[in-house]
Structure formats: structure tokens, C-alpha cells
């Protein structure tokens, strides 16, 4: 390592401080008011039928409820706040339109199970525990795998595609959408830079 590069590079202490700060920033971003706001916005948008061009409101609510069990909202925002349903709506009306008939068929079957198990034909109106129990019975099916695929894609692909709102998915992972980095990149290389070992 050349001297100039070492001097330019963050020392380990600086790196740790900046890492701690960005962790704190993430926590701020994920704090309750923001979380609620994001959730409310996504929910309000759906209530208003905004931006849904492919899915009917009822089936969108059901698919969104499944996505919300795949990546639930807990201490941090989940699929719901990330607006995964808007990614699904867009892609199912576009390049993945061929998925839709099987998804609708799978949803109808899931709703039948919901009805026979819990007396409710609506998946989204079940409790979270009931939803999880039902999903565990289908989580190796093509139906679930397709929704899993679209949920992950809607959570972690570019926000330009309709999901990953406010980069919620990327923030969850600690991924910053930057186009350049300087060393050190992590803790262990920072440590080596500092100690030379």
C-alpha cells in the first residue's frame, strides 16, 4: 500500500465511527414515525387504487398480505412499506404477465384453505399467525415460489421498478447505492491498514 493511499484512507477508528453513525442513521430511518409514515403512504396509495394497473384491489390486498409475511414488518419496515405490491402490479402487467393466471389460481386455492381452516375466504383478514400457518403448508409450491420471487425482487431491485420505496430493501441489508468506493471497504482491511498486519 502506498503512503498516499494510506493517508487518504480512513483510519480504523474513523471507519468504526462512520460505520456506527451510519448504523444509527439507519435506525433513525427505521424509527417508528418514519415506519408508520411509509406504511401509511403505501397503504393509502393502495386504498386509493393509485398506480394499480394490472391487479384488482381485492387480489392486490391478498398478494400484498402474503408478501408481508415473506418480509414482515417488525422492528424494521418490510414488504408492505417497500411497496412491493406496486412492483408486482407493474411486472405482472408487463414482462411477467405469464405468471398471472397461475397466481390467481393459487390464490383461489389458498383462499379455500383459509375458509376451510379459519372460516374466512380472505387471507389478508386472518391473523399473522394464521397466515403463517397457512403459508407453511404451501411454501414449496410454484404458487408460493413465484410470489416469493416477486416479493424479493420488489423489495431489493431498483426503486425505479416500482418497489423498494425509499430504498427500504437496500437499507435493510446495509447496501448503499453508490457508484464508487474507496478503501478500506470493511473492518478487517481497515484494521490491516492501521496495523500493517
Amino acid at each position: 500500500m502506498t503512503k498516499a493511499l494510506t493517508e487518504k484512507a480512513l483510519t480504523r477508528r474513523e471507519f468504526l465511527r462512520s460505520a456506527t453513525e451510519s448504523a444509527r442513521d439507519s435506525l433513525l430511518i427505521l424509527s417508528t414515525p418514519t415506519l408508520l409514515l411509509a406504511g401509511q403512504q403505501a397503504h393509502a396509495a393502495m386504498e386509493a387504487g393509485e398506480a394499480l394497473t394490472t391487479l384488482a384491489a381485492g387480489e392486490a390486498a391478498e398478494f400484498a398480505a402474503i408478501a408481508a409475511r415473506i418480509i414482515p414488518t417488525d422492528e424494521t419496515p418490510g414488504a408492505n412499506e417497500a411497496g412491493v405490491i406496486y412492483f408486482m402490479d407493474r411486472i405482472l402487467g408487463g414482462s411477467r404477465a405469464e405468471f398471472l393466471p397461475a397466481l390467481r389460481q393459487g390464490l383461489a386455492e389458498l383462499q379455500q384453505s383459509a375458509n376451510s381452516s379459519y372460516g374466512s375466504p380472505s387471507f389478508s383478514s386472518l391473523t399473522a399467525d394464521q397466515q403463517d400457518s397457512l403459508l407453511r403448508t404451501v411454501d414449496r409450491t410454484d404458487f408460493f415460489n413465484t410470489l416469493h420471487y416477486l416479493t424479493i425482487a420488489g423489495m431489493f431491485s431498483s426503486p425505479a421498478l416500482g418497489g423498494n420505496r425509499d430504498r427500504i430493501g437496500w437499507k435493510l441489508l446495509g447496501f448503499e447505492a453508490r457508484h464508487a468506493w474507496m478503501p478500506p471497504f470493511g473492518y478487517y482491511d481497515a484494521q490491516q491498514m492501521e496495523t500493517g498486519e
Binding site: I70, H148, L172, G174
Partner: peptide, 16 residues
């Protein structure tokens, strides 16, 4: 884990 809270927590930890 492929879905649910455990999945979410682990990918949040593991990516970095």
C-alpha cells in the same frame, strides 16, 4: 430460512 422474521433478520445481518 426463506421467509418470515428469521429470514429477514439473517439477511439483514449477513449481507455486510
Amino acid at each position: 430460512a426463506r421467509w418470515g422474521s428469521q429470514f429477514k433478520q439473517e439477511i439483514a445481518r449477513d449481507f455486510t
